[in-house]
Design a protein around this nucleic acid. Structure first.
Lengths: 283, 283
DNA sequence: ACACTTAATGTAGTAATATTACAACTTTTT
DNA sequence: AAAAAGTTGTAATATTACTACATTAAGTGT
């Protein structure tokens, strides 16, 4: 809780001298955080231990700790909170809100992601003969992006939008293949079927989906992301960003596992793109 | 300015030992603010004066003053700094770093985006007869995602991966069409050509690209995002996320402009998906 | 109103924390 | 290879915060 509010609230519980300290701090907190206990004591016309006792009464470890709390209270910038867009919001508001709620969702996703599973998935991917990425609807573009990333690694990668192609591809899979299925809800029927087919052919199935979903049950490994989706908008937003970030993480883990020489290769891929681009002016 | 960002920026100007201190602080700022100079020195495996010199280099009065700044930065809600993944990082480190640098990039993007342009683009989109989204490589999946979003709005939307299809589509465009071209660098030749073709046919061309790029020059309107790309990895990561967030913003602006009745329609689109999904158990 | 109890405050000493001066060492330059 | 510039650590010093205890003030019952 904000310590400035706390001072105001507890004011009645303070003793006479302590209240003098409170007054001085509330009056000019900016000066307070840059003062030593001695200076502040003089300003409040009390002794140093009184200031110290004042700090302790506010559940801080002592004067330096109190200053830290105070500093944080003063820097009351808007922390990232998932705020929903409202009917009457103008461009400025909704732009800000969407950026902030996206960041907030990433923070939540970060805390929910299981590092161990990440590591195991990276393991699997590095050992795979062939990697497939499938998703439908909003998750299709995530799979698409994964294709783009892993393609650079010079590993056989497969991506289809067409569910029949996805099916056929899975039917032809074997135990050296890894199939990554992406779905926020984990309830898309045809994707669950694909998971089943892939497993029937001994492929390893990794799900980027919500845990305990029908899809999750069909997977060998599940990377679940607990992202609060903004349902007001009726379209997937934050979940997709979190999924993409997870793809970035897997791709990064992949390159790290492959070692330094491999990254040389990546640079080469990037360099071959140069021909299709306008040169950057060197000024 | 945020002191965490400052540390990241000045990193190159630091000496070897100072960088060790920087690492420890960036790695766990929460612990840093609650440590004494001696503890922090030990954690960084340097001497106390080195920590002190580190603080001074960041224009603070000394260690206590530095802690104050740090505390404020943390309270600001922006504890996210773009930190590069290192060779020896384990899953825990790179996962954390990628999430954090993605968030940091979004923060930078947020500050760089021009609200006025956003508003004008939303204007254009709502009035368009047909909207096209084109991108190549990593930006293809962003265009793909845009398709998925705008398709729900019951507006004619076009998206092609094939550059010949993109060309043909633009040749058939007219003054009621809006073509959105996505490219981080803005230097992809064929995309610049497409922009040219579209304009020659009187379509309005919107670029989601970096400003002053060849592509930007061909566009009627440019939505530029200044995102620091992690070039160590040789693959686009943060830029893409920022672009997607921008798509979310445009889509949101679009629905808001269309008003409440329109959002009913969106809900209907979502409901029609239900048939393809497993019902959620209501428990 | 007085002695007694309890709480509040300050003084002085002590502990902790941070800073400075300088020397040893490393790297860069000539 | 020597000199210079820069970096880092050691040890002494200064600053700052904290503790124990003494003193004063306020409250309570007789």
């Amino acid at each position: 809780m904000n310590i400035l509010e706390k001072i105001t609230q507890n004011k009645s519980a303070f003793s006479k001298s302590e209240r003098k300290v409170a007054e001085v701090i509330l009056d000019n907190p900016q000066i307070a955080i840059h003062s030593s206990i001695a200076t502040l004591a003089k300003m409040s016309d009390v002794s140093e231990p009184t200031v110290n006792r004042f700090c302790r009464r506010l559940d801080t470890k002592g004067f330096p700790d109190f200053k830290l709390h105070l500093a944080q209270s003063l820097a009351n910038g808007t922390p990232y909170v998932n705020r929903h867009v409202e009917e009457h919001d103008g461009p400025e508001e909704y732009t800000k809100k969407i950026f902030e709620s996206t960041m907030a969702s990433l923070e939540v996703a970060r805390q929910s992601v299981d590092i161990n599973t990440v590591n195991r998935v990276v393991d699997l991917l590095t050992q795979a003969q062939k990697i497939s990425f499938f998703g439908l609807g909003a998750s299709a573009s995530v799979a698409h992006d994964a294709l783009n990333k892993f393609f650079r690694f010079n590993v056989p990668v497969v991506y289809f939008e067409d569910i029949l192609m996805q099916r056929m591809s899975c039917m032809n899979s074997n135990e050296d293949d890894v199939v990554v299925l992406i779905s926020h809800t984990g309830r898309t029927k045809s994707l669950v079927e694909i998971a089943h087919i892939a497993r029937a052919n001994d492929a390893t199935v990794v799900g980027i989906t919500s845990k305990d979903s029908p899809l999750a049950k069909e997977c060998n490994l599940v990377l679940s992301l607990e992202v609060p989706e903004d349902t007001d908008m009726y379209m997937p937003m934050a979940s997709r960003i979190a999924q993409l970030t997870l793809i970035d993480i897997l791709a990064t883990g992949f390159t790290l596992r492959r070692g330094g020489k491999f990254r040389e290769n990546l640079k080469r891929v990037k360099d071959t793109l140069r021909g299709s681009r306008f040169e950057k002016r060197t000024d």
